[in-house]
Design a binder for these strands. Structure first.
Lengths: 257, 257
DNA sequence: TTGCGCAACTTGTTGGTACAAGCTGATGCA
DNA sequence: TGCATCAGCTTGTACCAACAAGTTGCGCAA
């Protein structure tokens, strides 16, 4: 006989049907009571099964509406080209990338002075708790929260490049501005991790249960020392990071889907 | 008043206490009935709250034992050095990396012929369903499942380098073997994504609920065309990927923790 | 025609109960 | 002493009930 618990049978059956295309992305699942009748299980048991799929990120639910099959269009971010070392873009690579994809970018922005936490302090090689300039972006694509980006600059750098600590955009791009101030960024160290979002992140990025975040930390170096640390938090279901290494001339223009 | 539902209050309180160190990694939480008394909530409500923390990956539960605070030591993988273009390692970068970290690596290995799925076919620029050689690794660190790695080689390459399709290791490393066969890998395209594991992946990697997987796809190119596609699936809680770009001479040897 | 409000659906929350199943230590028999 | 068993803890599964709260559309009143 079937020794799987009933709630898991429900989850497995629905997962198969979703994967098989019976319920395409964006469509609605039958209601809990219908499923309850179909599987001859109590509403609680059906809910357990649905909950499983929610925490796998396959479906989402809203009160009064029902369960919907999640649609996920991933957005590709070419990290090795993102701020190319030879071709310095003017900082809004995000804007051009999103616009090129036919989507509408928007963002909120703020600047503040804040003590470095241990994670940032370690990467900037400054003392924990010492002051840093934080430039923070909250980015949207078609008004859907997409990512948050926090860039920390060490105190000594803000003294040499005072516009860093002023509110408002730096039109020519911070990297280029720093170059005019004599600080040239010649290398990066990228770290990529994933985990489930904290409640704060889930709120900021409007992440439902079952969607992990992709954490991207980029530490930029001059020829002497680290000059910035950028921590970007992406919705894991909507983003993919790409790196090109070496000679890819054999690679055609069209990227894999 | 507090308008948060009770099960969330339970989750938030416990999360604070775990983050605050009241329950260090590896320690056990009070039992459901104790928590039920403490929060003046039913066992079901407490279970909902605990379930929340499980799906955040913060705790795990086992029948008969109780709830345990998860410990997570991340393992750093330097992807840009992993198979350096100038310094060809002999393929077991994984073994040396793990051994250097004072851990014990082990793996199972198999070779098979398999039709390419659309994901692989797109990257190898072959027809969907055409035959590929699959070399598959299931890797462990200290007997804990760590990652699975599936490398697909196109059919035409297996004809030029027949040892690819033979079972058993290629001692000098596949990259080096391919070079002797006149196939030189001169560039990579890396894609990194994250999502919740499928039930299969959860089983293979022994992933509890609430832990995402990190997906790393590396497509290797010769000067003419793609020659391999490696798909690595990591436990997201135990791994972090690093990339070095540009000149990092200013970066000291010691990596950030 | 327009718009308000309610009925009838949906999921969300919380309580209860019962039994199954896994783990641990104590007890007692050989 | 050594080992089997069992009591008493733990979480896992499954059911029931009731009400809260969000959404939708129908129908009636202005």
């Amino acid at each position: 006989m079937n020794k799987q618990p009933k709630y898991r049978q429900v989850a497995d059956a629905l997962r198969r049907e979703i994967d098989g295309g019976d319920y395409p992305p964006g469509s609605r699942l039958p209601s809990e009571s219908e499923l309850s009748a179909r599987f001859d299980a109590s509403r609680n048991t059906v809910r357990s099964g649905l909950n499983q799929l929610v925490s796998e990120g396959l479906i989402s639910s809203s009160q009064g509406l029902g369960y919907e099959v999640r649609k996920h269009e991933v957005f590709k971010l070419n990290a090795s080209r993102f701020e190319n070392l030879t071709f310095e873009q003017n900082g809004d690579a995000y804007n051009t990338d999103v616009t090129n994809a036919g989507r509408r970018p928007s963002q909120t922005f703020r600047v503040e002075m804040t003590p470095a936490n241990s994670y940032v302090a370690e990467r900037l090689k400054v003392d924990g708790g010492s002051t840093t300039v934080l430039r923070f972006c909250h980015r949207f694509v078609d008004d859907v929260p997409w990512s948050t980006q926090a860039t920390y600059y060490p105190d000594w750098l803000a003294k040499e490049a005072p516009r860093l600590a002023e509110p408002g955009d730096i039109a020519e791009g911070t990297t280029r501005y720093l170059a005019t101030a004599g600080i040239e960024q010649i290398g990066y160290f990228d770290e990529i991790a994933t985990r489930m979002p904290t409640p704060d992140e889930a709120r900021l990025l409007d992440i439902g249960a079952g969607v992990p975040v992709l954490l991207w930390t980029r530490t930029g170096y001059s020829d002497e020392r680290p000059i910035r640390c950028t921590i970007t938090t992406f919705r894991g279901d909507l983003n993919r990071m790409n790196y090109e290494i070496g000679d890819l001339s054999a690679r055609p223009e069209s990227e894999p889907k």
